[in-house]
Amino acid sequence: MIANQTPTAISHRELYEQDFCLWVEQALVLLREGNLTDLDLENLLEEIADMSNSQKQALESNLKILLMHLLKYQYQPEKRTNSWRYTIIEHRQRIHRAFKNSPSLKRHFLQEFTDVYLEARKLAAVETGISIDTFPIASPFTTSQVLDEDYLPE
C-alpha cells in the first residue's frame, strides 16, 4: 500500500476469500451490531453447518480408533500392550468429552455405530494381518461396553 492511500473497502463476502480470521471477526461485529445487511449470511450459514459436521467427524474418528483397538485387544491377547489400553482410554475420554460439550452427539454416535464398526473391522484386519472374516460382521461390543471406561474384552 502506498503511503496516504486509503485501503479499498471490501465487502464482508469478499473478505471471506481473502482473510478467514478477519472475516469471522467482522461477522461477530456485524452480528453484535444487528447489521444483517452487510453480513455474508451465505458463507456464515455454511460455516455453521461445517462446525456441526466437524464435530460429528471427530466423534466418528474417535469411535473408529476405539473400536479398532477393542478388536485388536480381543483378538490378539498375546500382543496386548499398555499402549493399546492407553489408546482405548484416551479415545473413550474424547468421546465422553464430546458428549459433555454436545449431548446431541450421542444420537449421532448411536446412528453411526454400525457403519463405524464396519470401518474399524476392516482397519483392524489390515493392521493385524488377521483375516477380516475372523472379526464378526456385527459388533461384538455393545454401545454401553464401548463407552464403559472400565470395560476391556477379555
Rank of each mutant, 00 (worst) to 15 (best):
F113H: 10
T37W: 08
P136T: 02
I132D: 03
T6M: 09
P140H: 04
S11V: 01
M1Y: 10
M1W: 07
I132C: 07
Y75D: 13
L118E: 14
K106W: 05
A138L: 14
Y73I: 06
G34E: 07
D115F: 12
K122M: 12
A58H: 06
H12W: 02
T6A: 10
Q93P: 06
N101H: 14
D148C: 03
N4G: 08
E119R: 15
N35K: 07
H96E: 11
M1S: 12
I2S: 06
Q18D: 01
P77S: 14
Q111P: 10
I10V: 12
L31D: 07
L66H: 07
W23Y: 09
S54D: 15
M68S: 11
Q74G: 11
L30F: 04
L59F: 05
Q18R: 05
E47R: 03
L147I: 05
E119Q: 15
Q26E: 12
P7W: 03
Q18S: 04
H12G: 00
E60L: 12
A9G: 07
N43K: 05
I88Q: 00
I65F: 05
P140S: 06
Y117I: 14
G129F: 11
L110F: 12
R32I: 04
C21P: 09
I88E: 00
N4K: 11
G34P: 03
L41F: 08
P140N: 06
H91K: 07
N101A: 13
A98N: 08
V126D: 14
V116T: 10
E47G: 04
I65D: 03
A120I: 04
L123F: 08
G34R: 07
I48A: 13
R32W: 09
P153Q: 08
D133C: 10
E33Q: 12
N43H: 08
